[in-house]
Amino acid sequence: MENYKESFEKYESALLECTNLSQNFAGIPSPTSSHFYASLLFTKLCNCANSIGHLAPNPDQIGKNAHWDYSSVSSLTRDLIECYITFYYLCIDKCSIEEWNARWQLMNLHDHMSRVKMFNTLGIDYEGKEEAKNVKIEVIDNLKSNKWFRELSDKEKTHFLKGKNAFFKSQDEILTASGSNVSDFRFKYIFSSNHTHTFPMGFYRMADGNRGRGVESIIEIQYTALCLEWVSEYLLKAKTEFAGKFETLKLCNLQCNK
């Protein structure tokens, strides 16, 4: 299974490069919130990729009764890809300071409304708490007073102030800005989503090709390799963008410490 070996080695190399980069830039103060969140999201990206490596058997385990579960690998692959999209949108995509602040405030509103929705399922009136009320009022006020946000249409402002969206842009818009192929991404996303949510496509053919049983099969090996290829792709994209964002800061930090 040379293809699997190549995909696994590519994944290991990409993860090692990203991990080394993260460690090399450790301890550098973040001059902006964008840099701070870039550090957090890049770490999350590496952590997710590392977990995928624990699920994907090493090539030398082929034929040795290893546990195979491409479906779970696929679910984590979707998590990693979504992490990359957030990383690019919040930390790499070029925009004005006013727009960036609006993006961040919208995420704060989405975070608040997500907590409200979650606790409501338990019968807890989270939004009724004084602290929660103050958070919502503050975030909405910050959005309404934001120059970039005020230039949106009334319909758009009403829509986003509901807090149901974490992004002002669609996935396709973010991907286009990042230079990604939208059609190629959509295939990856649909494939992994069907396993993440256990939609019919994720289990209808379990009887075919001996897949989804934890045992080795051609399908398990091929699909795991496919996911590893995707993981490598987004790791390397993030690595280049993260390095570009922090490289100047590292040089400045070294010069200041001389």
Rank of each mutant, 00 (worst) to 15 (best):
F87V: 05
A38W: 10
Y84I: 06
Y88C: 12
Y89L: 05
S232R: 09
L251C: 01
I92P: 04
T121S: 04
K44E: 10
S30M: 11
E229L: 02
K239P: 00
E233F: 15
R211I: 01
R115A: 11
K164G: 12
N134A: 15
H112G: 02
N146M: 08
G163K: 04
L175F: 01
S153F: 10
C48T: 15
Y89E: 09
I218E: 13
I28M: 00
D69M: 13
S96M: 05
K94E: 06
T198N: 14
G123Y: 03
S34P: 05
W230T: 11
P200Y: 10
E138N: 08
A38G: 14
K157T: 09
E17Q: 11
F8H: 15
N257H: 10
G53E: 03
T176E: 14
A56Q: 02
E220R: 09
F42N: 02
D93S: 05
T198D: 06
Q255N: 01
N142G: 15
L143I: 09
A66F: 05
I124R: 01
L45T: 09
V73I: 15
K162L: 13
A225R: 03
T196Q: 15
P200L: 09
S51I: 12
S34F: 07
N3Q: 13
S193A: 14
N47W: 00
C95V: 11
S71G: 12
S96G: 08
L55Y: 14
F149W: 15
L249G: 05
S193T: 15
K117F: 12
S34Q: 14
I81S: 02
D111S: 11
D154I: 13
Q171E: 14
E156Y: 03
I92L: 01
P31K: 11
C95S: 10
L106Y: 04
T19L: 03
T196M: 15
A66T: 06
Y70Q: 09
I85D: 03
N142W: 06
